[in-house]
Amino acid sequence: MSRAVCPGSFDPVTHGHLDIIGRAASLFDEVIVAIGVNPSKSRLFGPEERTEMLRRAVEPFANVRVEGFTGLVTDFCLAHDAPAIVKGLRASSDFDYEMPMAQMNSALTGVETVFLPTSTRQSFVSSSLVKEVAAFGGDVSAFVPDFVLAALTARLAAGGTT
């Protein structure tokens, strides 16, 4: 069985994330969406909220499951017998950031990284940009699932991060 891990913070999950996850699901027998949990970082949504949103968002993909992790993504991959990490690339700056990590991961553990270019419709979408636009009252409904939009709107109205 081929298994891959799609890691990220997913704060919040966007249609761009789901595009990469869906395409990875068509390439691998199983995809584990690994939500990074870093207690020292402030996020708009807590780990449980992000996990629930992602589980709901990936329901259409029968071979995708969601789990949280702490520490190195390669340790998570090795513990789950996943020889590949899937990362989406929006621009050359993403490649410049991701390539040294991919090479380090491969050199240290043998876990390989598969890069997927984002679709042109999603190439500019990031969780950070979605949160920023939404915080200023912009319409981000085209970039996130409806239930994520509702949670995002409610969280921003409450004025808080986790």
Rank of each mutant, 00 (worst) to 15 (best):
F124Y: 15
I20Y: 06
V114I: 15
G138K: 11
R155H: 13
G159M: 11
T162Q: 13
V125K: 03
Y97K: 04
T120D: 14
V58C: 05
T74H: 07
D146E: 15
D29K: 06
P83H: 14
M104F: 08
L129F: 04
P117D: 03
E48P: 02
V64T: 08
T70E: 15
L89I: 15
T109R: 09
P83F: 05
I35N: 08
F61P: 00
L116V: 05
S126K: 09
R3K: 15
S127W: 11
M99Y: 12
Y97C: 03
V13T: 09
M99P: 01
V133R: 11
T51K: 15
A135W: 02
G68M: 04
T118C: 14
G16R: 06
S92D: 06
V64Y: 08
V37N: 14
D96I: 01
I85T: 06
R50V: 02
M101P: 02
V114R: 11
R65S: 15
G159H: 12
P83G: 14
A142Y: 01
G137F: 10
K41H: 08
R90N: 05
V33C: 10
S123M: 13
Q103S: 07
L149D: 04
V130N: 08
M53S: 03
Q103A: 09
F143P: 00
S123N: 12
R155G: 10
A150L: 02
Y97R: 11
A24H: 07
V140D: 04
V140K: 08
A158I: 03
N38K: 10
S26E: 15
A79Y: 00
S2F: 00
F143K: 00
F147S: 10
M53G: 04
T162L: 09
I85C: 09
A134Y: 09
E132S: 12
S26I: 00
G8S: 10
V33F: 03
T51R: 15
V37L: 07
T70N: 11
S119M: 03
S106E: 14
A157N: 13
T109Y: 08
R55Y: 01
R65H: 04
I21R: 06
T51F: 06
N105G: 05
A34I: 06
S42M: 12
L18K: 12
P83V: 01
V140Y: 06
L156C: 02
V114E: 01
V114G: 07
V58M: 08
R43Y: 14
M101K: 05
T113G: 08
E52M: 13
V133L: 13
A134D: 09
D96W: 00
C6F: 15
T70W: 02
R3S: 00
S9N: 12
G8P: 10
S106M: 02
E30V: 00
L156E: 05
E48G: 12
L156I: 14
A107I: 00
L108C: 06
G36M: 14
F115W: 03
E30W: 01
N38E: 11
L156T: 02
E52P: 04
G138E: 08
E67D: 12
L78K: 14
E98G: 09
R90F: 05
I85L: 15
L72A: 13
F28R: 09
V86R: 05
F45P: 00
S127P: 07
G138V: 06
